[in-house]
Design a protein around this nucleic acid. Structure first.
Length: 243
DNA sequence: AGTCATGTTGACGA
DNA sequence: CTCGTCAACATGAC
């Protein structure tokens, strides 16, 4: 469920609950989820991979981690982490991480680092890249402080698109190319969003989980790369360490 | 059936 | 203090 575009879809599917009173709360979360009972859901926001249920004076932050899911007006067998009932339906969250953020939500988040947000600031992202010349591009793309919402799929797909090797060092990548990478992150994230909504996301993957490079027919390399050791799929012929 | 993965945090030791 | 490593959480696709 995780990457940023999926969170935006989740939010859209829950819009009808905004402005509604929470009539009943259930679930095995250790947080004080009963606090939401009789609360009015003021707004739903997303920041990167965070889904934010905003109430007056506090916000419940839902993070799906690797396995988290949600259902609207449906149940499944796995333990319910959090269920919210409204007069027009209900939301169930499973194996998600839940935290409470006190006070004004804007005090907690910098919206300009969220790649799906209208306030996304490309220049700030570029500056943060320049500040990390020794980092590998595969690590930096997953940094939520720089590219909130980018996950491993987006990482692999955009590096394949721009023909940059995941183990390329930032300082070896020309600024124009770095800028192209940052622009592709935004472009691809919105394509991801459209494809996911249409249930055709996987068939548009060019690199992630793929075995063959469709450009040169050579086998794609599968390797855990960088300090984060997350799996990368790449073509060692098409994708360059130095440009 | 066993492996592994769209993720993050916290503990621990060097 | 910072860095790297590891465990923990927990589900479903293959």
């Amino acid at each position: 469920m995780p990457e940023g575009p999926s969170l935006l879809i989740a939010k859209e599917q829950m819009l009808s609950f905004i402005g509604k009173e929470v009539l009943e709360v259930e679930g095995n979360s250790k947080m004080d989820i009963q606090r939401m009972k009789h609360g009015i859901l003021e707004d739903i926001k997303t920041w990167g991979k965070h889904l934010l249920l905003c109430f007056p004076g506090y916000t419940f932050r839902i993070h799906f981690l690797l396995f988290g899911t949600y259902l609207i007006n449906e149940d499944k067998k796995t333990p319910l982490r959090l269920g919210l009932h409204f007069d027009n339906g209900r939301i169930n969250f499973y194996s998600a991480s839940i935290k409470i953020l006190e006070g004004n939500i804007h005090e907690h988040y910098d919206w300009s680092v969220d790649v799906m947000n209208d306030d996304w600031n490309e220049k700030m992202a570029m500056q943060k890249l320049y500040q990390r010349p020794e980092s590998l591009i595969c690590d930096v793309l997953l940094e939520q402080d720089i590219f909130a919402g980018v996950g491993n799929i987006i990482k692999n797909e955009i590096l394949y698109r721009v023909k940059i090797h995941p183990e390329a060092v930032i300082k070896d990548i020309p600024k124009a190319k770095l800028k192209e990478i940052v622009k592709q992150i935004i472009l691809y994230s919105f394509e991801f969003y459209e494809w996911k909504k249409a249930y055709v996301l996987k068939k548009h993957w060019l690199a992630h989980t793929k075995k063959i490079c469709h450009r040169c027919e050579l086998p794609l390399i599968k390797k855990n790369t960088g300090k984060k050791k997350r799996r990368s799929f790449f073509c060692s012929s098409c994708q360059k360490l130095f440009v």
